[in-house]
Deep mutational scan, measured.
Amino acid sequence: KEQQNAFYEILHLPNLTEEQRNGFIQSLKDDPSVSKEILAEAKKLNDAQA
Protein backbone atom coordinates (compact mmCIF):
# COMPACT_ATOMS: atom_id res chain seq x y z
CA LYS A 1 0.00 0.00 0.00
CA GLU A 2 2.77 2.43 0.87
CA GLN A 3 4.41 1.66 -2.45
CA GLN A 4 1.13 2.33 -4.30
CA ASN A 5 0.72 5.67 -2.54
CA ALA A 6 4.27 6.72 -3.36
CA PHE A 7 3.79 5.56 -6.96
CA TYR A 8 0.61 7.62 -7.29
CA GLU A 9 2.11 10.72 -5.70
CA ILE A 10 5.23 10.60 -7.86
CA LEU A 11 3.07 10.28 -10.98
CA HIS A 12 1.31 13.51 -10.00
CA LEU A 13 4.27 15.71 -9.08
CA PRO A 14 4.02 18.49 -11.68
CA ASN A 15 7.63 19.67 -11.88
CA LEU A 16 9.50 16.43 -12.57
CA THR A 17 10.75 15.64 -16.04
CA GLU A 18 9.62 12.40 -17.62
CA GLU A 19 13.12 11.04 -17.11
CA GLN A 20 13.18 11.91 -13.41
CA ARG A 21 9.72 10.49 -12.88
CA ASN A 22 10.68 7.24 -14.60
CA GLY A 23 13.82 7.00 -12.49
CA PHE A 24 11.91 7.33 -9.23
CA ILE A 25 9.30 4.83 -10.36
CA GLN A 26 11.99 2.35 -11.37
CA SER A 27 13.58 2.77 -7.92
CA LEU A 28 10.21 2.04 -6.31
CA LYS A 29 9.88 -1.15 -8.32
CA ASP A 30 13.46 -2.20 -7.54
CA ASP A 31 13.11 -1.72 -3.79
CA PRO A 32 9.58 -1.07 -2.45
CA SER A 33 10.88 -1.09 1.13
CA VAL A 34 12.37 2.39 0.67
CA SER A 35 9.29 3.93 -0.94
CA LYS A 36 9.05 6.60 1.80
CA GLU A 37 12.61 7.74 1.14
CA ILE A 38 12.11 7.71 -2.63
CA LEU A 39 8.93 9.75 -2.32
CA ALA A 40 10.73 12.27 -0.08
CA GLU A 41 13.50 12.63 -2.68
CA ALA A 42 10.97 13.06 -5.48
CA LYS A 43 9.09 15.75 -3.54
CA LYS A 44 12.33 17.57 -2.74
CA LEU A 45 13.31 17.60 -6.42
CA ASN A 46 9.81 18.63 -7.44
CA ASP A 47 9.94 21.59 -5.04
CA ALA A 48 13.42 22.59 -6.19
CA GLN A 49 12.21 22.71 -9.79
CA ALA A 50 9.01 24.62 -9.07
Rank of each mutant, 00 (worst) to 15 (best):
1 K>Y: 06
1 K>Q: 14
2 E>Q: 05
2 E>D: 12
2 E>P: 15
2 E>Y: 02
2 E>K: 04
3 Q>F: 14
3 Q>N: 14
3 Q>W: 15
3 Q>E: 14
3 Q>L: 06
3 Q>T: 06
3 Q>M: 06
4 Q>D: 12
4 Q>S: 08
4 Q>V: 07
4 Q>L: 04
4 Q>T: 09
5 N>A: 13
5 N>H: 13
5 N>C: 12
6 A>V: 09
6 A>F: 09
6 A>W: 14
6 A>H: 07
6 A>R: 06
6 A>T: 10
6 A>Y: 09
7 F>A: 07
7 F>P: 03
7 F>R: 09
7 F>T: 11
8 Y>Q: 04
8 Y>M: 11
8 Y>V: 08
8 Y>K: 11
9 E>A: 14
9 E>H: 15
9 E>T: 14
9 E>I: 15
10 I>F: 02
10 I>M: 04
10 I>L: 08
11 L>G: 06
11 L>V: 05
12 H>G: 07
12 H>M: 10
12 H>Y: 09
12 H>T: 10
12 H>N: 09
13 L>R: 00
13 L>Y: 07
13 L>T: 01
13 L>K: 01
13 L>A: 02
13 L>I: 02
14 P>H: 08
14 P>Q: 13
14 P>D: 07
14 P>A: 12
15 N>L: 05
15 N>P: 00
15 N>I: 01
15 N>F: 14
15 N>Y: 12
16 L>M: 02
16 L>Y: 00
16 L>A: 00
17 T>Y: 05
17 T>A: 03
18 E>L: 10
18 E>M: 12
18 E>V: 10
19 E>D: 08
19 E>A: 10
19 E>L: 11
19 E>M: 12
20 Q>T: 02
20 Q>V: 02
20 Q>Y: 01
20 Q>A: 03
21 R>S: 03
21 R>W: 02
21 R>E: 01
22 N>C: 09
22 N>Q: 12
22 N>D: 10
23 G>H: 08
23 G>Y: 15
24 F>C: 01
24 F>W: 02
24 F>M: 04
25 I>M: 12
25 I>Y: 09
25 I>G: 02
26 Q>V: 03
26 Q>P: 00
26 Q>M: 15
27 S>W: 14
27 S>G: 07
27 S>D: 07
28 L>F: 07
28 L>D: 00
28 L>R: 00
28 L>Q: 01
28 L>K: 00
28 L>E: 00
29 K>Y: 13
29 K>V: 07
29 K>F: 08
29 K>N: 08
30 D>E: 08
30 D>Y: 11
30 D>S: 13
30 D>K: 14
31 D>P: 02
31 D>S: 11
31 D>I: 07
32 P>L: 09
32 P>G: 06
32 P>F: 09
32 P>Q: 05
32 P>T: 04
32 P>A: 10
32 P>K: 07
33 S>N: 09
33 S>W: 11
33 S>F: 11
34 V>D: 10
35 S>Q: 07
36 K>R: 13
36 K>C: 06
37 E>N: 09
37 E>Q: 13
37 E>L: 15
38 I>G: 01
38 I>N: 01
38 I>D: 00
38 I>V: 10
38 I>M: 03
39 L>C: 02
40 A>T: 11
40 A>I: 12
40 A>E: 13
40 A>G: 07
41 E>S: 14
41 E>A: 13
42 A>W: 01
42 A>Q: 00
42 A>R: 00
42 A>K: 00
42 A>N: 00
42 A>T: 01
42 A>D: 00
43 K>E: 05
43 K>L: 09
43 K>M: 11
44 K>L: 09
44 K>N: 08
44 K>V: 10
44 K>S: 07
44 K>D: 06
44 K>E: 09
45 L>I: 09
45 L>P: 00
45 L>Y: 05
45 L>W: 11
45 L>G: 01
46 N>F: 01
47 D>H: 13
47 D>Y: 12
47 D>W: 15
47 D>I: 14
47 D>K: 12
47 D>F: 14
47 D>G: 11
48 A>M: 12
48 A>R: 11
48 A>P: 02
48 A>K: 13
49 Q>V: 07
49 Q>M: 08
49 Q>I: 08
49 Q>K: 04
50 A>I: 11
50 A>M: 09
50 A>F: 12
50 A>W: 11
50 A>H: 10
